[in-house]
């Protein structure tokens, strides 16, 4: 999800980071504050503090670690989801593994941040999500492909999507590690077309982003 061209968000925004490990939190805060669009960045170290900051600051985005001393960050993500102002929540994870991302997305998160990513990447990912982008990773591509019913073993849980051959090709290449540009080169199409195809796949799940797609899958009881 790091390879999407990023447009500049004009209005300055407030960001809250909920992370109990001090050094990690500081590093993320520095990465976030590097962005010109970010006005303030406060740090909370527990669920209680996070909820308090959320209600006080009313941030545009909140970065949440799930394993907090007094509970799970999922609670904060839910609160942000229910907020009456637009607030994107991003799960802060070490590995961006499917379990963590899906758990957060089920709660309403709209993206993820790798704790150990380079500061520029952290900033870029945050911006992508703020702009309503549809990031994708090999893990998520693989997951989407698994939703396509196999002719020899029909899924009986009702959840399935129909993909065109081209869409399947794109997802398969992404799952096999190819970057957006490489996918475009291999298939002789533009990067923009690749993005369009991915968006089409998301639309087939009747959602606007891959993260919500996974959330839908989750609601339908796939996990």
């Amino acid at each position: 999800m790091t390879d999407r061209p990023v447009e500049i968000v004009s209005a300055p925004v407030d960001v809250v980071i909920v992370e109990d490990r001090r050094e990690t939190a500081d590093r993320l805060a520095r990465a976030v504050l590097q962005l010109a669009q970010v006005r303030t960045c406060s740090i909370a170290r527990s669920v209680r503090e996070g909820l308090f900051e959320l209600s006080q600051i009313k941030p545009r985005a909140i970065l949440v670690d799930l394993g907090l001393p007094d509970g799970s960050g999922v609670e904060i993500i839910r609160a942000a989801q229910a907020a009456d102002w637009p607030c994107d929540s991003l799960v802060v994870t070490v590995f961006a593994d499917e379990d963590r991302v899906i758990e957060a997305i089920a709660a309403g998160a709209t993206g993820y941040i790798l704790k150990n990513d380079r500061p520029e990447e952290v900033g870029r990912n945050l911006l992508t999500v703020l702009e309503g982008g549809s990031p994708i990773s090999p893990q998520i591509a693989r997951y989407l492909l698994n939703l396509v019913p196999q002719p020899e073993e029909p899924k009986d849980d009702g959840l399935e999507i129909r993909l065109t051959a081209r869409e399947k090709d794109i997802l398969r290449l992404i799952a096999h590690g190819f970057k957006r540009q490489e996918v475009a080169d291999k298939l002789n199409i533009t990067v923009g077309t690749v993005g369009t195809h991915i968006n089409n796949v998301y639309r087939k799940l009747e959602v606007g982003s891959n993260t919500q797609a996974v959330a839908t899958a989750n609601r339908l009881g796939l996990f």
Partner: peptide, 18 residues
């Protein structure tokens, strides 16, 4: 492991950097 050790490792790396 992920939450505990992973988080700790990342935190230590962040410390080195910070």
């Amino acid at each position: 492991l992920h939450d505990g050790i992973g988080g700790q490792l990342v935190n230590t790396l962040a410390y080195l950097e910070n």
